[in-house]
Design a protein around this nucleic acid. Structure first.
Length: 470
RNA sequence: GGCGACGUAGCCAAGUGGUUUAAGGCAGAGGUCUGCAAAACCUCCAUUCGCCGGUUCGAAUCCGGCCGUCGCCUCCA
């Protein structure tokens, strides 16, 4: 079975076939950097990271380009409000976001593009559009002539009249058509600007992605991704610009992730109902966010709430529990064989579900099935090759989804390295108490360690311990 | 108003015509193990898929209506 994906362009499941054999070129719309990113942005980054990782798992060489919108009205407004330099402001939040991506275990992009470093390409592309009759100048701004684009609206399945309906009536009432959108905006006094054939100004929002794709990936790319709130107008306009410019299809597959919901409504900067990535990571592991997102489907809205995160954390603990050091001595026999079969089945199921438009929820379920098989085998004293293979498979498949499987971080004060020997010493002492049947004391010791975040477990081969975040 | 998505157990959620009289995770109940706990394992936990009709030998899955939720139509991942 081969990979099939839901293409927003045409709204159907299609088998995935990249332009160049074995190579995938993908572009994902990144954030506008005027404030700290929230976990909705993180969801998008995580979803496309998963898609990229899975494509690589399938053996594709992936060129992954993502951008930062670092010139924009909101940035200018925010800079004015806070009396900052807009470029410094954008730079600050760009770096913050890059840090967050690392914290979230998002693989580094092949290239991070920015509007500010793309200016010559943007200007020449706008110029070309003008030459070809797709754009016109008006008072120092340049607009895209929507009427010239015969299949405008094909992505969002919107007719031009619908697109016009809600258009904000604003400054340039002289636009040829209300649906025409800005490729270049003339600078107002005090605004940052670049020199252009049309005077001082800055690019419109949509043209940046057109130029970045064209100049960093080529006229036609395999996958274009982003949140489904970008379908209209942003991606529709990108298609209009790019295809008018090159005469080639812009992107073969359009993939859109659903929105993160906080108490029933979309999380967004403008509504102010958000949890920033930084806030989330103060209390939770990056894996927890992936679990919340991937227990659902990337195209559907994801519910976010404290109890949902808590449930995800407990599921992850179960996953990690299956990776405990295996000390069983049975390496052959029916139990070992059952484990081997469970491992093969998990691999096959995982792959089949991921091939089905990245059904991460079902894919994770097949990993959980393997974890249960591992635990059962551990109880049956299975160890050796098959156990190693089973545990490695859990790690490998979880890694395809971008999970780190790291437990709660070690507290800083343990830097001295004294904590572990001390814990071992306490366990040793407690074992002696237990042998002496002084259970009350032994239990008290266990409880107190538990309060300190050290959880003891008495097994048939002695006591083990692990950190357990309160 | 226009375009689109969705409504599955206490919660999150997969499943889109028979192999499912509905995966998986969390929570809950009982049991095994244990000095006790924890972890793990076993069993149970929706005769039912928003509601009402229809198509079909057969529907959570297809069609129609209704109710409800959400997204886009303005900046938005």
């Amino acid at each position: 079975m081969a990979l099939r994906v839901f293409n927003s362009l045409g709204r159907e499941i299609q088998s995935f076939q990249p332009l160049a054999e074995g190579c995938v070129r993908m572009y994902v719309c990144g954030p506008t950097v005027y404030a700290d990113a929230h976990i909705g942005h993180a969801m998008s980054a995580i979803v496309f990271d998963m898609i990229r990782r899975y494509l690589e798992y399938l053996g594709y060489e992936v060129t992954y380009v993502t951008n930062f919108t670092d010139v924009d009205d909101k940035i200018i407004d925010r800079a004015r409000e806070t009396e900052q330099d807009p470029f410094e402001l954008a730079e600050h939040y760009t770096n913050r976001y890059l840090e967050h991506l690392r914290d979230l275990n998002v693989k580094e992009a092949t290239e991070y593009t920015r509007v500010t470093t793309e200016m010559p390409n943007i200007i020449s592309d706008i110029h070309e559009l003008g030459e070809a009759g797709y754009a016109y100048e008006l008072n120092g701004s340049v607009y895209f002539r929507v009427l010239r684009d015969e299949d405008y609206g094909k992505l969002s399945q919107r007719r031009l009249e619908d697109a016009r309906a809600g258009t904000r009536v604003e400054e340039d009432l002289d636009k040829e058509d209300p649906a025409d959108f800005a490729l270049w905006k003339a600078a107002q006094p005090g605004e940052p600007y670049w020199e252009s054939p049309w005077g001082h100004g800055r690019p419109g929002w949509h043209i940046e992605c057109t130029s970045m794709c064209r100049h960093h990936l080529g006229d036609t790319i395999d996958i274009h991704g982003g949140g489904n709130d970008l379908v209209f107008p942003h991606h529709e306009n990108e298609i209009a610009q790019s295809e008018s410019l090159t005469g080639q299809p812009f992107a073969n597959y359009w993939l859109h992730n659903g929105m993160m919901q906080l108490s029933g409504t979309k999380m967004s900067k403008s509504l102010g109902n958000l949890i920033t990535i930084a806030e989330f990571l103060e209390d939770h592991s990056p894996d927890a966010l992936r679990m919340v997102v991937f227990q659902g489907h990337y195209r559907k809205p994801v519910q976010f709430a404290d109890d949902i995160v808590a449930a995800a954390e407990r599921g992850l603990r179960r996953m990690r529990q299956g990776l405990r050091f295996a000390q069983g001595r049975t390496t052959v026999g029916p139990e070992a064989d059952a484990l081997r079969q469970a491992t093969e089945r998990a691999r096959a199921d995982f792959r089949a579900h991921m091939d089905d438009d990245f059904n991460t929820s079902a894919a994770i379920a097949s990993i959980f099935d393997l974890v249960r098989a591992i635990n059962t085998a551990q109880a049956a004293d299975v160890g050796g090759l098959f156990m190693d293979a089973a545990q490695d498979t859990v790690r490998e498949l979880m890694d395809v989804l971008g999970f780190t499987l790291e437990g709660p971080a070690e507290p800083e004060e343990e830097a001295s390295g004294l904590a572990e020997p001390l814990i071992e010493l306490l366990i040793e002492t407690r074992s002696e108490l237990r042998v002496a049947r002084k259970f009350e004391l032994a239990d008290r010791l266990r409880d107190r360690l538990g309060e300190l975040g050290i959880q003891l477990e008495d097994g048939p081969r002695g006591t083990t311990w692990q950190r357990n975040r309160a």
